[in-house]
Design a protein around this nucleic acid. Structure first.
Length: 287
DNA sequence: AGCACCACCTGTGGGC
DNA sequence: TGCCCACAGGTGGTGC
């Protein structure tokens, strides 16, 4: 489910609601929800910690706790974080995996249908337990056009979609925002990175940032499960131009949106508006 | 090094 | 209505 915009929407909301609050305790309801340390130590270490600040890196949500501890959360496909006073009001109650019980009397509820989501408590130097150390620059708060161009040059043979999805390349994009960005930039998802010149790359960088920005402004994309910290859906799904629109008219030309598989993921594109691949094939034949 | 494939889970929607 | 299959916003491991 959540990509960078969805995690950022949740972070901003929780930042207003729980900053400065204290986690009295945690309740765990699903084995495997804690990535590190053990469930027992997770519960012991989190008790009585003050939430000093909130961060996001890629799709990871991070709460800085007093005593140099970090609470790290990844929602993976179907995870949600909901701020409630009473669990009875929780929409995803059936899939509740953990709660953080705050001194204020409120709770942060971690629900997750598919159980892929994880939480970690990390001390300084323990980022590798969550894979945080392997992330590239965050697309929203860290990456620069220069980063992007330099990194593209290092992976020039990879299809551009593969790179955009690779969190070690740059962190935060998932399947929806990748397909939407490539459509908006007019680039076929299979185009090899090395085929993009500097101007193409710069344009793609700006388009990705604009697409993420609009996603955040509209409260994220609720294709199915995503809800913000108040339990409400986002609105960017109404603005999707290709994702999940196989067989529909493009909207910018008379062609029809196609679906294929790339990087192991369902991939949506317009064969007419995203022609980079065709040009690349032609230039390869001329070699 | 990089990529394809499977695994992890549960639910939903389409076709018959 | 029911069954079966494909597919779903993510990532890590394995083997070629």
């Amino acid at each position: 489910m959540p990509e960078l915009p969805e995690v950022e929407v949740i972070r901003r909301e929780l930042n207003e609601l729980i900053l400065g609050d204290v986690i009295n305790s945690a309740d765990l309801f699903s084995p495997g929800v804690i990535g590190y340390p053990s469930e027992e130590n997770f519960c012991l270490q989190i008790m009585g910690r003050k939430i000093e600040s909130t961060l996001r890196k890629g799709k990871f949500l991070i709460f800085i706790l007093n005593g140099s501890l970090k609470l790290v959360i990844h929602l993976r496909m179907t995870g949600t974080l909901t701020h409630v006073r009473d669990i009875i009001n929780l929409r995803e109650k059936k899939y509740l995996r953990a709660t953080l019980n705050l001194k204020s009397g409120e709770k942060v509820c971690f629900s997750d249908v598919r159980k892929f989501g994880r939480m970690w408590i990390l001390r300084p130097g323990e980022d590798h337990h969550a894979g945080l150390d392997r992330l590239g620059p965050d697309w929203w708060s860290e990456a620069t056009p220069g980063d992007f161009i330099n990194r593209l040059a290092l992976r020039s043979k990879s299809p551009i979609k593969t790179l955009l999805l690779d969190q070690r390349f740059m962190a935060g994009l998932g399947n929806i925002y990748t397909d939407e960005s490539l459509f908006r930039a007019g680039i076929h998802p299979a185009t090899r990175a090395g085929y993009l010149n500097k101007s193409d790359a710069l344009n793609l960088f700006m388009v990705v940032r604009d697409t993420l920005s609009e996603g955040i402004d509209r409260g994220g994309t609720s294709f199915r499960d995503y809800r913000n910290a108040s339990g409400k859906p986002g609105g960017f799904q109404e603005k999707l131009l290709v994702y999940q629109r196989k067989g529909e008219l493009c909207g910018f030309c008379d062609d029809i949106i196609q679906r294929t598989i790339l990087a192991g993921r369902g991939t949506y594109f317009c064969p007419t508006c995203q022609q980079f691949q065709k040009w690349e094939d032609r230039s390869r034949k001329q070699e």
